[in-house]
Nucleic acid binder design. Structure first.
Lengths: 155, 155
DNA sequence: TAAGCGTTCATACTTTCGGGTGATTTCAGG
DNA sequence: CCTGAAATCACCCGAAAGTATGAACGCTTA
């Protein structure tokens, strides 16, 4: 919204500048015709001047657009979201239920709480956990969480 | 590298176009002078045309530069490094030793391993751990790790 | 100097975790 | 149809984790 307003302001300013410049050119034209009558040089200078003006105008107008794009990008990037490493899970042969246990484990839940959430017995959770520890080559649930995090299996 | 080549190609093409356009303008100038002698209109048209050309040229040339800037920004941003939340640690009243225990805990070490590393007894580690659990308002070490991570106290 | 805090450690006890073993069911694939 | 993997559950036992309580020491601050 504000970028549009500022852009319009710029256009207005440059429009007025162009008008003034045109008057200047006309005055110069008269001078030129009187002095040397070298029309070709005048035409060339005029063309060059206005092309430069055009380039300058375009740069001024389009530069804010550049900055806007950059802002969008910088906002977009900090999505350091977690991407599950399917390859690693498959390589280690971790099953669906084991992964569920791992996930809940990493959230700080006890085996009993995990059992309640998954609607299975405590013993089942223990079995899944044991299998996980073998597959992740660890001896404790805290180490399992650490390893799983490093392998992008959780969070 | 390739962007520079393509940009130079563009400039060359537009340079040639400008030259051709100048010749066209001169020819038109003669026509104009013969037909109506309306110099003001001719000057205005010429100025407008070359300004538009300048704008067009600037846009074409500067657009690839925009993309380059975006790339630089996206490369710059992914510094997702861990910054220890000192305020939160102070707010919760977590001491140095407790923090050390928390750190080692989050690395998957057992109480005995932590005790060995810190050159204190197992009981001392347990005491620190218990105090941590109270301060972090949790009941298990896994939950403590989870909470500590969310508060940027570890890793 | 007394009070408070952090650190250290201890004993005793309960709970949770993890290993080992074995059993059943289900379901996909040779 | 048989096999094997996955999922489910059970029992036992030892290890680890966690709770409760108490105590000693050093440092800082009111």
């Amino acid at each position: 919204m504000t970028s549009f307003i500022s852009r319009y302001k710029l256009v207005l300013i440059y429009g007025v500048s162009c008008a003034l410049l045109l008057f200047l050119m006309k005055w110069l034209e008269v001078r030129f015709l009187i002095l040397s009558h070298s029309m070709e040089l005048f035409i060339g200078a005029l063309a060059l001047l206005f092309m430069v003006l055009g380039i300058w105008l375009a740069r001024k107008v389009y530069e804010p657009k550049v900055q806007t794009v950059i802002v969008e990008k910088t906002v977009e990037v900090p999505n350091q979201s977690f991407v599950f490493n399917e390859q690693e899970a498959a390589r280690l042969g971790i099953s669906k239920r084991e992964l569920e246990v791992l996930e809940l484990m990493s959230q700080g839940l006890s085996n009993q709480e995990i059992a309640d959430r998954m609607f299975v017995s405590l013993n089942t959770v223990k079995t899944h956990a044991s299998n996980l520890f073998v597959k992740l080559d660890v001896k404790r649930r805290t180490a399992a969480i650490e390893t799983a995090r490093k392998l992008n299996l959780v969070r």
